[in-house]
């Protein structure tokens, strides 16, 4: 009679290793760069690129999608949203490259990336 599979096998290490290496590469790539820049994307279009290190005070950004973002020195977060789940707000503050928060119902995504270009402006509005 056929037996059920064992709890763990040596072969399981292969997919785990591949995934961990892939994660490490993607994570290092997203962190590369000197400046911490928050990118705000709505409906597939990049609306803002904010250099979080140059932010001195706190302010909010209200988007057409129904989302309000809060920007503070070194951090950005979803402050309010008219979506059902509020997962975006629960993501909390994004502070370092590689961190991402998204509001899928409102098609809005915010992620932190590292920029190498020293001439990157403090904030760009499209």
């Amino acid at each position: 009679m056929k037996k059920d599979r064992k709890l763990l096998r040596g072969a399981d290490l292969i997919p785990l290793a591949v995934i961990l290496i892939l994660c490490a590469v993607l994570f290092i790539m997203s962190r590369s760069g000197k400046k911490t820049v928050a990118v705000v994307v709505e409906n597939g279009k990049t609306l803002y690129e904010i250099d979080l290190e140059s932010v001195t005070g706190e302010y909010t950004i209200a988007l057409d999608s129904g989302v309000t973002l809060a920007v503070s020195p070194g951090a950005i977060c979803f402050l309010a949203s008219d979506c059902k789940g509020r997962d975006c707000i629960r993501c909390g503050k994004l502070t370092s490259p590689g961190q991402t928060a998204a509001c899928l119902p409102n098609k809005t995504i915010v992620y932190i990336t590292g920029k190498t270009d020293e001439k990157t402006p403090d904030a760009v509005v499209y």
Partner: peptide, 30 residues
């Protein structure tokens, strides 16, 4: 659906959580 590749920034987190929780659910199934 959104026409944006920005969501791929979530890939490392989702891959890592997939590996962790996959290990957990596979063990639970056993």
């Amino acid at each position: 659906l959104s026409g944006s590749g920005a969501y791929w920034y979530l890939a490392p987190v989702l891959l890592l959580s997939g590996a962790g929780f996959g290990l957990l659910t596979g063990t639970a199934l056993n």
